[in-house]
Amino acid sequence: MPIVVRAAHSFEDVRTMVGPKRPDASVCFCLSHRLPAKQNRALVGPARGEYVRSLCESTIAPGVLAYDGDDVVGWAGVAPRSETSFARSTKIPHLDDLPVWSVWCLRVRPGHRGEGITASLLDGAIDFARTNGAPVLEGYPSDNGADRIDLTMAFVGSRTMFERAGFVYAGPTSSLSGGFPRVIMRYDLR
């Protein structure tokens, strides 16, 4: 069965992919790049889930989800850059004044890795951004060459993965992820 990618309007499926195991935990939900640091630290316990629930109920979802049949198997955080910490980043420069969208977190459920789901997520992120009027979609993956990336923390993707999805190298950053430099990859949607 082919992987289907849809806007992340299902809070339960978002929680399955990026929510903490305990509802009172004050971690993840893919909020560290969505919110200013002070607001992210202040949003604790169940309030984090409620915040994400409100995002899922918004007209524009907080990202996309990949499904294998009825099972959610992947997540990508996607939003206008202006609504993320990338809007204020001193390490990831703005290349121009276009109202860029960003894709910053790719997550695949254990047991489904190595099945091409991240490629489907990037294709879905492109379609999602285009449908919502974005002129350009940017990603900020690791430029790790052939070296393996530690997946312990959030996965920002690899340059090669973004190139295979049709993104082009647009410039360097002074940011690191997993010890590797991050680069700006762009997909023109115009």
Rank of each mutant, 00 (worst) to 15 (best):
P99T: 08
Y67A: 04
L122I: 10
R88I: 07
V73E: 00
G49I: 10
D71N: 04
W75N: 09
G49S: 07
P20V: 13
L43R: 01
G19I: 06
H94I: 04
A61H: 04
V100A: 07
R48C: 04
T84F: 02
P110V: 11
D97C: 09
L122T: 10
S32G: 01
D13H: 12
S58F: 06
V72K: 03
L122W: 01
V64G: 02
L65P: 13
L43T: 09
P93A: 03
R53I: 04
S54A: 14
R53K: 14
D123T: 13
G74W: 01
V52E: 03
I117M: 06
G69Q: 02
L122K: 03
R22Y: 06
L98G: 06
R81V: 08
D13E: 11
V108A: 00
S102H: 07
L106Y: 00
V14L: 10
W104T: 12
D123I: 11
P46G: 08
A79Y: 01
D96G: 11
P93L: 15
L106K: 02
S120H: 15
P46F: 00
H9I: 08
D97K: 07
G114R: 02
D71R: 12
A79E: 09
T16H: 14
C28P: 00
G111P: 01
F86V: 09
S89A: 14
G19V: 06
A119Y: 02
H33I: 06
K21L: 14
V18E: 04
I92S: 00
C105P: 02
V103F: 01
L98R: 13
M17V: 12
S120D: 13
R113H: 10
R34V: 14
T118W: 00
S120F: 10
I92M: 01
W101N: 07
S54D: 10
